[in-house]
């Protein structure tokens, strides 16, 4: 179980303050969506979680341990583009994680270890719906398939935290809905927390357990340089989603009808909680 804790983090580039006073506690198994206008620093924040950038001030810990200053296998990532390796086949892309961790010298596995890695990769690719494309190169795949591949590639390394940087932003609406379904399923199945940057609010509420909005609160021209963005909204998505548990809240059989109270009050024939008490 992986709790992420962000304590008073600032990010500055020279004079320019990008983020300020970021405090955040992310519970294990959360699915957090970061939203906000362009240039509000949500991607910068994700990069700090990835250790691609380091905070200017403050600290980020995972399970109480300070983040290592460089990216590592405890945090997986899927970018909007260029997440997969063009020179490896679909299978090769997913096996790469096992090969890199299994062989520090050659980055390749042989014999039984290789067969094992191959089988694991093929199983995961089957789960993301790519079992028919094992020997294709990424350039031969559609955008949606490439992102499925990128998810499989990241998950094979069993990251504690999966970081997503606008992963579905370039996909067509229909394909995006399919990949959303897959994403939710993967989050339920794999013991990880997810942090996703998106500019699509409906996507954020559709997938996440918690939506966090970044924005600049001081926008006068003379303030823009020295005041960065901070967290302006922190919304728990309702009805609650819990990892690994079925999403009853969204099942039509359990959804309240239009005139029903939003909560089940335990009195099917009454909609007046005061009287019931």
């Amino acid at each position: 179980m992986t709790a992420i804790s962000v304590k008073n983090v600032w990010k500055e580039y020279g004079e320019q303050v990008v983020l300020e006073r970021i405090n955040l506690e992310i519970a294990p198994r959360s699915f957090v969506a970061l939203v906000g206008p362009s240039g509000c620093g949500k991607t910068t924040f994700l990069r700090m979680l990835l250790s691609e950038e380091l905070p200017t001030r403050g600290e980020i810990t995972i399970d109480g341990v300070l983040l290592s200053p460089e990216p590592g296998p405890d945090r997986g990532v899927v970018f909007q583009r260029y997440s997969v390796f063009p020179h490896l086949t679909v299978l090769g892309n997913v096996m790469l994680g096992a090969e890199l961790r299994g062989s520090r010298l050659l980055g390749r596995l042989f014999g039984d270890a290789r067969r094992q890695a191959r089988d694991d990769a093929a199983a995961l690719l089957d789960a993301v719906g790519l079992s028919h494309a094992l020997d294709k190169y990424p350039a031969q795949l559609s955008g949606g398939m490439q992102q499925r591949l990128a998810l499989a590639q990241a998950l094979i390394a069993r990251p504690k935290v999966l970081l997503l940087d606008e992963p579905f932003g370039a996909l067509d609406p229909g394909i995006r809905a399919d990949v959303h379904k897959l994403m939710r399923q993967l989050w339920h199945q794999h013991p990880m927390s997810v942090v996703m940057v998106t500019h699509d609010l409906s996507e954020a509420f559709h997938l996440a357990t918690r939506v966090i909005a970044f924005d600049r609160t001081r926008t006068l021209p003379e303030e823009r340089l020295r005041y960065g963005a901070c967290i302006t909204n922190d919304i728990d998505v309702w009805p609650k989603r819990v990892a690994g548990q079925p999403d009853f809240g969204r099942d039509p059989a359990h959804l309240p009808r239009r005139d029903d109270p939003a909560l089940d009050l335990g009195h099917p024939d009454r909609d007046d909680p005061a009287d019931a008490a």
Binding site: L50, E52, E70, P71, G72, P73, R75, G76, V77, F79, S83, V84, F85, L96, G97, L100, R101, R104, G107, Q153, A154, A157, P159
Partner: peptide
Amino acid sequence: IKAQTLGAN
């Protein structure tokens, strides 16, 4: 970055 998150040196 991706390669590093997959455990490469």
